[in-house]
Design a protein around this nucleic acid. Structure first.
Lengths: 178, 178
DNA sequence: TGTACATCAGTGAACGCGCGTTCACTGATGTAC
DNA sequence: TGTACATCAGTGAACGCGCGTTCACTGATGTAC
């Protein structure tokens, strides 16, 4: 199996991202992916042991990119409500550009194959948020963080459905922190 | 096709509810359902035109029961934060008893077959919540309501995973309204 | 009351097809001598 | 520089099986006369 950075492997993942839509990772077919990537079906199995492996890789890559974006946006801000909002909006901006977000948030959670990866991903974002809630002196910062992540995800799905930023929704989001 | 209240039809739906777990409506097989219900495979198609129809019926029945529960709990309380919390906790209590909740919330949204039914269901709960946010004089009550429903759903999933009520999580939920 | 016929929920073997996976083969690139 | 061989990403036809759907049939219940 070729190394991770292989161009063909990337092309397959790119094609998967392009095809992931409408909350349905489960309906992502190997045939579709190889057609969109313009490679033979066998090539798929040169790079991924199974379809499940492919889905996990797709999911990871997607969220790794988002996580980088969040970290960059927060920069050197001190922990607290401003940093939480900055990171959350960066997340929403990142999602807006990705029509695959619905598949990644909903489809992924429903796909038994990658539930472990999804749990890890949720824990990762929740941990980021928990630091902010702790700095804000909220009681039960871990619980608040988990709920906050759920709420931001709901906002991301709404924006993905609308296909654009929803400013009133973002204001409502902020209002829950006041 | 027999009428709606047919005992066999109910047995099939009961079996489906029992089998729906781990967020995976997509992996609910007709074979599994008829085995669990103790009827022949052909009987399934006496009562449902397609597998999709069955999933929609399962989803509706589940949420109708929850909705009834919420309405009863709210009773004659005036609109406002107390009524919102009362209804939300009733929702969580109802979910706790149903291990199928994860499938219904996550699996359903990911299943293209029943997305329309899911949207309608979300709108229904959001409308209930919006009335409360409006009474609470929140700006953008519809937006707040949508986010709130997402947050409560996240709490429901957490409790379903834990298999019990999570009091600190419920306190965190309340804290977002203060 | 008894006989013939209609209705219809229920049955389960069989069908067909979609789709993930395999595998023998190709052809380009690299290495040894 | 040329020849032989090894490596390995890429190919695509073929396989096999899981699963939704069909359909000819059964047997119980109801109705007509």
């Amino acid at each position: 199996m070729p190394r991770d950075g292989s161009p063909t492997r990337e092309r397959l993942l790119d094609a998967g991202l392009k095809l992931a839509h409408a909350g349905a990772l489960s309906s992502l077919r190997v045939d579709e992916v190889v057609n969109a990537a313009g490679v033979a079906k066998g090539t798929f199995y040169v790079h991924f042991a199974t379809r499940e492996d492919f889905l996990v890789a797709l999911h990871s890559r997607f969220h790794d990119q988002l996580a980088r974006r969040i970290e960059q946006s927060a920069g050197t801000l001190p922990h607290g409500v401003q940093r939480l909002l900055r990171g959350s909006l960066a997340y929403l901006d990142g999602c807006c550009e990705q029509h695959a977000i619905k598949a990644m948030l909903l489809g992924a959670r429903a796909e038994p194959a990658i539930q472990q990866a999804v749990s890890a991903q949720n824990a990762r974002f929740a941990a980021l948020a928990a630091a902010e809630f702790a700095a804000m002196k909220w009681p039960g910062p871990e619980q608040a963080a988990r709920l906050w992540v759920g709420m931001v995800a709901e906002a991301a799905i709404a924006e993905a459905e609308a296909g654009r930023r929803l400013v009133p929704l973002r204001q409502a989001l902020r209002h829950f922190l006041e």
